[in-house]
C-alpha cells in the first residue's frame, strides 16, 4: 500500500477516502500512554486485592479479593473500635450505683452522652426529645416531681413504672363546689377552701396541699400543673376538668390518662441506671 500512498512522509495509516481525507497515525503523548497503562495496572491490581464483580469468566457471582475485604468487616471493625473505648467506662459503670455515677464528673459526662440514644428510643416519644414534656405528659426538666426527684426515685419510676389515681369528683361534688376548689387551686392556696378538708382532698394532697411523693399526688400550691391546659382551655377550666374526671379513674370514660410504663423488663439494670442519671441531669434532679 505504501507505494500507492499519495501523501508520503506525513505518517498516515494509508486509509484514504475521497481523494484526500486520510487517517494520521499520531501517537498519544508518552505521559498519556504511561498514565493509560498505569490505570490499567491499577485496575487489575484493584480487582485482585478487593472484591470484584462480575467474577472471572466461568465462575459465578464475584471474586472475594486476596485481602478478603468487605464493607461489613470494615463496619464491624469500626464498631469494635468504639466498643473498646466505651468498654473502659461501661465496666466501671457496671459496679456502681446511679448515685455513685452522679458523684463522678467524668462518668456522668460519659453517661449523659451515651444515654442520649436510650432516652431517644424509650422516653422521648412521651416526654419530648429533651424531656420538655408533651400534651398530657410530664416535663422532666423542671424541679416538680410527683414521685420525688432523687436519683433513687427516678430509677424506681423507670423500673416499675407509675400509674397515679385520682377519683373523678363529677358525681360527688356540686358544680359550685368544683368551682370553689378549682379557684383555690389556681390561686395556689387549696387549703384556703374549707372544702379541701371536708371533701377529703387532704387524704392524698396533704394538709398543706403540697402533695405526697409516696402517692404521686400533685403539689397544688406551686405554679406548675401536671396537666397543662390544652388548646384554648384556661387554667381554671383545666383544673375543673381534672377534679370532675379524675386521673385513671375506670368509672369515668373521660378521665385523665396518665400511665408511665414499667421499663424493668424492657431495659437492663445498667441501662435504667444510665437513664436515671440522664434524667436527673436534665435540670431538675434533686
Amino acid at each position: 500500500m505504501a507505494d500507492k500512498n499519495p501523501f508520503p512522509g506525513e505518517n498516515n495509516t494509508g486509509h484514504i477516502w475521497d481523494d484526500n481525507l486520510r487517517e494520521l497515525a499520531n501517537p498519544p503523548p508518552r505521559w498519556w500512554m504511561v498514565a493509560f497503562w498505569a490505570s490499567l495496572i491499577w485496575w487489575v491490581a484493584y480487582g485482585v486485592i478487593y472484591p470484584m464483580w462480575p467474577a472471572l469468566p466461568g465462575s459465578q457471582g464475584f471474586t472475594k479479593g486476596v485481602t478478603g475485604w468487605t464493607q461489613m468487616k470494615e463496619y464491624n471493625e469500626g464498631v469494635a473500635e468504639v466498643e473498646a473505648v466505651r468498654a473502659q467506662f461501661e465496666t466501671k459503670l457496671a459496679g456502681l450505683s446511679a448515685a455513685d455515677i452522679l458523684k463522678d464528673e467524668g462518668l456522668s459526662a460519659y453517661t449523659v452522652a451515651s444515654a442520649k440514644v436510650l432516652f431517644g428510643d424509650n422516653c422521648a416519644a412521651c416526654h419530648g426529645r429533651s424531656g420538655q414534656g408533651g400534651p398530657g405528659f410530664p416535663v422532666l426538666v423542671d424541679d416538680d416531681w410527683l414521685y420525688g426527684g432523687t436519683i433513687e426515685n427516678i430509677e424506681q419510676t423507670i423500673t416499675g413504672g407509675r400509674k397515679g389515681v385520682m377519683t373523678a369528683h363529677g358525681n360527688i361534688l356540686k358544680a359550685e363546689e368544683v368551682d370553689e376548689l378549682a379557684n383555690a387551686v389556681v390561686a395556689g392556696k387549696p387549703e384556703s377552701s374549707p372544702l379541701f378538708l371536708q371533701k377529703g382532698c387532704i387524704a392524698c394532697h396533704g394538709m398543706d396541699g403540697k402533695g405526697m411523693a409516696a402517692l404521686g399526688s400533685a403539689n397544688l400550691t406551686d405554679s406548675l400543673y401536671r396537666f397543662v391546659p390544652q388548646n384554648d382551655q384556661s387554667v381554671l377550666e383545666s383544673v375543673k376538668y381534672t377534679i370532675m374526671h379524675g386521673v385513671n379513674d375506670p368509672t369515668d370514660p373521660n378521665t385523665r390518662q396518665a400511665v408511665m410504663p414499667a421499663f424493668g423488663e424492657r431495659l437492663s439494670q445498667d441501662e435504667i441506671k444510665k437513664l436515671a442519671v440522664y434524667v436527673h441531669k436534665l435540670g431538675g434532679g434533686q
Binding site: 424541679d143 406548675l224 435540670g283
Partner: peptide, 18 residues
Amino acid sequence: HDRQPLFVIQSDGSIQNK
C-alpha cells in the same frame, strides 16, 4: 444556649435556662 426547651418554669415560678 439549650434550645429545647428554650426555658423551663420551676415550681416556684422562676425561669431556668440550660
